[in-house]
Amino acid sequence: MPDLPAILSEMFSYAFMVRAFIVGLLVSLCASILGVSLVLKRYSMIGDGLSHVGFGALAIAMATNTAPLAVSIPIVVAAAFVLLRISENSKIRGDAAIALISTSSLALGVMVISMTTGINTDVCNYMFGSILAMSRSDVYLSVALSSVVLVMYVLFYNKIFAVTFDETFARATGVRAGFYNTMLAILSAVTIVLAMRMMGAMLISSLIIFPALSSMRVLRRFRSVVVSSAVISVVCFVTGIVISYQYATPTGASVVCANIVVFCALSAARFFMNRTGVFK
């Protein structure tokens, strides 16, 4: 067993690690709590689609040599609007349309990249994430935006529950469900862009889906699921980043692996709870 306090103090002696840690913690929190609603509203595909759009946007930013976050946030937010409309209006072919958009932006991104820089380390970082990719101004923007996401979520928590559980009732009693759906999509878009640098475009949607699914294996109330997703996500992030520091593995993949372990453990727990009759 490696000496954990020693590893942590060594890790935090690097300024870039501290930055990565703070940003990672915040975006993991945002992704996991938004994930509960996205999974329950069957919007998980939107999260996946947005990450691919985000990759395309980053590729364009790289080609044109502009600030990556400043370019990709507006593009991904706009895509969130479009994807939300698609999945609301055409129930049957919604997922196909989303897959179409996400693969198109991926292809576009790859085209732009190969015509400009070629597949280099930067591109790999966008695909699979890197904590080194974050500049100081990126960090400030990330901290500010993810704080906004968290505050908005807490302020609108009750409304988010209502439109997630029963949108028709919410509408009928005068809650502006469309507004809150759009807000959910925008907050997700912002979170995905922020988390993409670290987790990578290919892996970011797991940060949204895993904690919520894991919590729902064993918990049966919305608030407990939200709180537990946040805790699971933070724990998995810390575990992932320590592993990635210690064994020089990519951060994103390490965090996802930690999430897989938690998911399997909770699924097993549910299995035994079912057998011993703790449920029902």
Partner: peptide
């Protein structure tokens, strides 16, 4: 509503559902 809003796998406590009526 005519149809029950959520499936059996939706994690929502009874109290959470009832009080959501006060939301509007």
């Amino acid at each position: 509503p005519q149809r029950s809003p959520a499936g059996a796998d939706f994690p929502a406590g009874v109290y959470e559902v009832v009080i959501s009526g006060c939301l509007a």
